[in-house]
């Protein structure tokens, strides 16, 4: 039984994403009014408009929407599994782990002429390996922590490992082929500029697999809000649920990062915004989180190409500027209530 309020707010969010979608398609080096955008979308526009919309702008806009949803969901899952409102892929070192995976992949599989010796489609897998590797280390360190497994510990280990991954990325970029290094550098800061339909398809496929699984796990996910002992006493197989959800979260992060780079803080901001908009225990919480994530990355990417046009800023820098103050606010409020 979804309350009317929840339904209407989800509707509003969806409308906002659609509006953002059309606006973002309209804006760029040449402005195409929304009416012509829609015409071009439905194959009835001018030939030039159709080329711009379909081949230049649409893949980028769709990629921003899908990657935003993936990163936001990854953050929401992570926050539930760790029972820590400050957990997010970029804070826990998962994002940088994925980045390391990608850079290493480009390094290992390039020949002298800087051509890849294997298909670029393996890149998401490399990102996933890096992300899982760092997630495992951070998790392992926290579990084996002699000072207890408090939620802050995981974040601290994540920060430490993120620094390590960043350093390794730098080194690999210097060792690796110069051409690839340049490419990796723009990608690392989180840009969505060079989007292709193939990238869009990869992220879309990942979300299509994750969505039904998350719907199936919706109740257990709620139950994880309780402490592990109590959750187990209500009949939840806690360990198994945590592992499955964590794996989905890391996979979604890896997928998004491999396509749009290290766009940080989305996984932190979106779940919190969703809490404010419809509540953390409302039925549509995950849907709202995904929509807000889409809106956020789409907005950041659109801003990134407009603020200093014709230069493009990294979308990741803009999300960090929104995310960092939010994180501090959460930290201060948390300390206020829990001493």
């Amino acid at each position: 039984m979804m309350r009317l309020r929840t339904v209407s707010r989800l509707g509003l969010l969806t409308a906002a994403v659609v509006a953002g979608f059309v606006t973002s398609l309209a804006l760029g080096s040449s402005l195409i009014p929304p009416g012509r955008v829609l015409a071009a979308l439905f194959g009835e526009g001018a030939r030039m408009d159709e080329v711009i919309v379909w081949t230049l702008r649409l893949p980028r806009v769709l990629l921003a929407i899908l990657a935003g949803a993936a990163l936001a969901l990854a953050g929401a899952l992570l926050q539930r599994v760790t029972r820590n409102p400050m957990a997010a892929p970029s804070i826990l070192g998962i994002t940088d782990g994925a980045a390391l995976g990608v850079v290493s992949f480009l390094w290992v599989f390039s020949d002298e002429a800087n051509r890849l010796t294997v298909s670029i489609h393996w890149q998401p897998l490399a990102a996933a390996i890096g992300a899982f590797g760092f997630a495992l280390i951070a998790g392992g360190l926290t579990l084996a922590d002699p000072r207890g497994r408090g939620p802050l510990r995981l974040i601290l280990y994540g920060i430490a490992l993120a620094a390590l991954a960043k350093a390794a990325v730098t080194l690999v970029m210097i060792i690796g082929p110069v051409y690839r290094a340049g490419q990796a550098l723009t990608w690392l800061t989180g840009t969505i500029g060079a989007a292709h339909w193939g990238d869009v398809a990869v992220v879309a496929a990942g979300l299509a697999v994750a969505a039904p699984v998350l719907a199936w796990l919706n109740l257990p996910l709620r139950q994880l809000a309780l402490d592990p002992q109590t959750a187990a006493a209500t009949g939840l197989p806690v360990g198994r649920t945590q592992i499955v959800l964590l794996a989905i979260s890391v996979a979604l992060t890896a997928l998004a990062v491999s396509q749009v780079g290290a766009v940080g803080f989305v996984g932190l901001i979106a779940p919190h915004a969703a809490r404010l908009v419809i509540g953390a225990f409302a039925p549509g919480y995950l849907v709202a989180t995904a929509l807000i994530g889409s809106l956020l990355v789409l907005g950041a990417d659109t801003l990134a190409r407009l603020i200093a046009a014709p230069l493009e800023l990294p979308a990741g820098a803009i999300t960090a500027l929104i995310g960092a103050p939010l994180f501090l606010t959460l930290l201060i409020r948390r300390q206020g209530t829990h001493g």
């Binding site: 029972r83 309780l226 402490d227 002992q229 109590t230 006493a233 939840l236 209530t337």
Partner: peptide, 16 residues
């Protein structure tokens, strides 16, 4: 869980 319920010593849930 349907057979036995249990309340542990210091249970935790989000304040909200």
């Amino acid at each position: 869980a349907r057979e036995i319920a249990m309340l542990s010593q210091s249970p935790e849930a989000p304040d909200e």
